[in-house]
Measured scan of single mutants.
Amino acid sequence: DETGKFLVLALYDYQEKSPREVTMKKGDILTLLNSTNKDWWKVEVNGRQGFVPAAYVKFL
């Protein structure tokens, strides 16, 4: 149950560059965990948590 969690859509592919980031593919649906930083949002994708560039995702 994803109640209270926001979902975001990956607009572009992103390859993680550090262990704190996660890789996503364009079209992936991600669970948004934290968006307090304007540049990097914490998400969960494929069972992994990490950061992606905020400009690469949008709210569903």
Score class of each variant (00 low, 15 high):
54 A>C: 06
56 Y>S: 10
6 F>G: 11
33 L>M: 08
30 L>V: 08
8 V>T: 04
5 K>T: 12
23 T>L: 02
34 N>Q: 09
49 Q>S: 12
24 M>H: 01
10 A>Q: 01
1 D>C: 13
60 L>G: 05
3 T>G: 12
16 E>V: 06
10 A>M: 02
3 T>I: 14
10 A>L: 02
17 K>H: 08
40 W>E: 04
11 L>D: 02
39 D>P: 03
14 Y>C: 02
48 R>F: 06
33 L>K: 05
24 M>W: 02
18 S>M: 07
48 R>Y: 06
46 N>P: 05
15 Q>G: 07
21 E>W: 04
19 P>E: 12
42 K>L: 15
28 D>F: 04
24 M>R: 00
50 G>S: 01
35 S>Y: 12
6 F>H: 14
37 N>Q: 09
29 I>H: 05
16 E>S: 15
37 N>C: 09
17 K>A: 12
35 S>F: 10
8 V>E: 00
16 E>Q: 14
51 F>Y: 15
12 Y>F: 14
21 E>H: 07
53 P>G: 01
36 T>R: 11
27 G>V: 01
6 F>P: 12
4 G>L: 12
8 V>G: 09
9 L>H: 05
55 A>R: 14
11 L>H: 04
4 G>T: 14
7 L>Q: 12
37 N>W: 07
52 V>F: 01
46 N>Y: 08
43 V>F: 01
27 G>E: 02
31 T>R: 14
53 P>E: 01
58 K>M: 15
28 D>T: 07
36 T>E: 14
30 L>T: 01
38 K>A: 12
30 L>H: 02
47 G>Q: 06
23 T>F: 04
25 K>G: 04
24 M>D: 00
25 K>Q: 10
12 Y>V: 12
53 P>M: 03
37 N>M: 08
5 K>N: 11
43 V>H: 00
25 K>W: 08
12 Y>K: 11
53 P>V: 02
40 W>P: 00
44 E>S: 10
13 D>P: 06
17 K>Q: 15
16 E>N: 07
48 R>P: 01
59 F>N: 08
13 D>Q: 03
38 K>N: 11
54 A>E: 03
33 L>Y: 04
5 K>H: 14
59 F>Q: 10
9 L>G: 03
51 F>W: 14
42 K>A: 08
41 W>C: 05
34 N>E: 15
25 K>I: 08
36 T>S: 15
17 K>M: 12
24 M>S: 00
36 T>V: 10
34 N>C: 11
55 A>S: 14
12 Y>T: 09
18 S>L: 08
48 R>V: 08
21 E>K: 04
13 D>A: 06
10 A>D: 00
6 F>Y: 13
50 G>A: 03
58 K>I: 15
32 L>C: 08
40 W>I: 03
26 K>M: 08
44 E>M: 10
44 E>C: 11
47 G>I: 02
26 K>H: 06
44 E>I: 08
21 E>M: 05
56 Y>G: 07
39 D>A: 11
37 N>T: 06
54 A>R: 11
29 I>S: 04
9 L>Q: 11
47 G>D: 07
2 E>V: 14
18 S>K: 07
14 Y>D: 01
37 N>R: 09
42 K>Q: 11
13 D>L: 02
50 G>N: 01
38 K>I: 09
29 I>A: 04
4 G>N: 13
52 V>W: 01
58 K>C: 14
18 S>G: 13
59 F>S: 09
21 E>Q: 11
6 F>E: 09
58 K>T: 15
7 L>D: 04
17 K>E: 08
9 L>Y: 14
28 D>K: 03
13 D>C: 05
10 A>S: 05
49 Q>D: 06
27 G>A: 03
44 E>W: 06
15 Q>T: 15
11 L>F: 04
27 G>Y: 05
60 L>F: 12
58 K>D: 08
9 L>A: 06
29 I>K: 06
8 V>R: 01
27 G>W: 05
48 R>M: 07
9 L>T: 10
31 T>H: 11
15 Q>S: 11
36 T>F: 10
17 K>I: 07
40 W>N: 02
9 L>R: 09
30 L>S: 02
58 K>E: 11
52 V>G: 00
24 M>V: 10
18 S>T: 12
18 S>E: 09
51 F>T: 03
3 T>A: 13
26 K>A: 13
